[in-house]
Design a protein around this nucleic acid. Structure first.
Lengths: 238, 238
DNA sequence: AGTCATATTGCGGGAACCCGCAAATTTTGT
DNA sequence: ACAAAATTTGCGGGTTCCCGCAATATGACT
């Protein structure tokens, strides 16, 4: 069995490799990549079927790499291994994972035993395994109150890359007023208090982005991704 | 010699400890802390004079911890050890470091040898040692063109936490128009192109925050810090 | 002292933003 | 299928934002 480790931090990579050989005797070969782009290449050329993937990486992040890997070989089993329980990454995963492929999500703070368990469950047994901490977030994200629905999340990203109302309306096919309504509920859900105790006004848009970042609803990677998505849309639009 | 390691990632902490005992035989005791707050406490209670400090931490980041440690014992030698060459952290350090204390800045991607060298240079010899990558950033930050001056950086933070022009003007003691001028040059220096190739307009404020984050001029920690600074100012203002 | 560069400030106007109100449309529940 | 609930949309107005223009103020250099 061939396993690919995609991880830019050398310490974490070697720790992972150790855990891997301990936990899975069936592993015959271990490949390494230090960023998403390289990960995609190796997965392709070595016809990898099991991957352990960091999410935060310099060149192309784990979500994007997973997306292309799955598009080329949908049965690839991918265990995500990340520092944070970060809603931005979660959304990326749940919209990406193919119908019948196995994946898992483990935090780097998990014990070695739990990591080994997840390695076996996902890479060998083909199960779905998600860290409880993450799962809590996922539930919150799918409960009605206080959580962003996908359409609101899209608009949040649009806002975050600096689109103005009119442009968002065009991109998402809504009227101007609807966009503004969405923004209102976004402000509400993000807890944007536009007025301080002293009655001072704040800039809502900036405040919304600020809150979204601080609460880890989005992260800097997602700004990057959203920007590229937008540019692709621009190009198609002509 | 007693050394305190402040680092929330266990792998990095143990790697650091290994390097420390290899490089500095004069080390007699090693203390550990997993966040800034705990770091401050240990430094105080154990009267630590040498610290290796991660910058990115959950509870209180390295800059803030260093600030209080230095305020209590200005001769403490601190080696910062961080993942990123991040301008936001840099500004924090250069405004914090006392006149006659030693410090250093090493990237986690540096080789083990370079780390050991820095450990000796800073903690034992009391020298200043800054990774070349960082130094490049520092120079760029102090060269006239294209770099933010401190007053612009302040305004960037104000913008980033959502203050409107009028409030910034009050806080910084300038006229409204001056604030707007500052914002203009800020937009310029951050490379905020408000207009896409297709002639579409973008929201400058949000765009500015976006760019500042993506170029690592500021980071999410600094949003947090700036917010607290603002609240302190609010309280004083009454 | 005098000249030139740079910063600060006021004024004014067009565009964007925030949002209340009310009508039209879609979705949901039974 | 029908009513209630939620969403979408248009209109309009009060703010805030962006910025050109021009008058002062401040600083630097000779």
């Amino acid at each position: 069995m061939k396993v690919l480790i995609v991880e830019d931090d050398q310490f974490h990579a070697s720790y992972l490799e150790d855990a891997l050989v301990e936990a899975l005797p069936e592993v015959t070969q271990i490949f390494h990549a230090v960023n998403g782009e390289e990960g995609e290449k190796q997965a392709r050329s070595a016809r990898i079927e099991a991957v352990v993937m960091d999410l935060q990486m310099e060149h192309r992040n784990g979500i994007e790499a997973a997306r292309t890997i799955w598009s080329e070989r949908p049965h690839t089993r991918i265990l995500f291994w990340s520092n944070y329980a970060d809603e931005a990454y979660l959304r990326g995963i749940s919209t990406t994972v193919p119908e019948d492929s196995a994946y898992g999500y483990v935090l780097k703070t998990a014990s070695r035993d739990r990591l080994k368990l997840a390695l076996r469950a996902v890479l060998v047994e083909g199960q779905i395994m998600v860290d409880r901490e993450i799962h809590r977030l996922q539930r919150r994200a799918s409960s009605p109150r206080n959580a962003l629905q996908d359409s609101e999340y899209e608009i949040l990203l649009d806002l975050a890359i600096g689109l103005q109302d009119k442009l968002i309306a065009e991109r998402r096919g809504m009227s101007l007023r609807t966009v503004q309504n969405r923004l209102l509920s976004l402000y509400d859900k993000l807890g944007v208090d536009t007025v301080t105790d002293e009655g001072l006004q704040l800039n809502k848009r900036v405040r919304a982005l600020n809150r979204a970042l601080v609460t880890r609803t989005i992260n800097i990677d997602s700004l990057d991704t959203a920007q590229r998505d937008f540019e692709r849309w621009l190009a198609r639009r002509g």
